[in-house]
Design a protein around this nucleic acid. Sequence first.
DNA 1: GAAAGTAAAAAAT
DNA 2: ATTTTTTACTTTC
Length: 145
Amino acid sequence: MVNSFTIKWGDLFFNVEGERVVKRAFFSKVPKFDFKENELSERLKRYFRGEEVDFECEFDLDLPSFTTKVLERVLEIPYGKVSTYGELAKELKTSPRAIGRALGRNPIAVLIPCHRVVSKNCIGGYSWGVEIKRALLRLEGIDIS
DNA sequence: GAAAGTAAAAAAT
DNA sequence: ATTTTTTACTTTC
């Protein structure tokens, strides 16, 4: 089913099956799905209120292996911290661009914190707009120039 | 296989 | 400090 969650910048939708997140989550401005409370939405609410939240959710994705690997690594970035494309690349023995590519294909916004990955000297990019990315980071107490 | 694409980095100016 | 070139990967055809 589709769950939606209204936040400041629009609505965040995500497909869920029970407590498991499936396929994708994305931002949109056109709310047209029903909202149903569940464990995850509670956590998200707290998160957007500015609390430190560990989502601890499972994903059922169907992604290329490399992408999965990158996303898994990104999941380990703790709240309030950021990593850089270069760092991740080094750890995974790949190139920064490949990381960016994988993240760009990240189907699950916010839950997989691709917003915590920035470029070396600036904020980097974000599929739903850097404004959202910056806002997310500010939530976590990180200020980007 | 080959080509295109990339949310980067390094080098040159 | 900004623009330009080079890079190294994945994806997709």
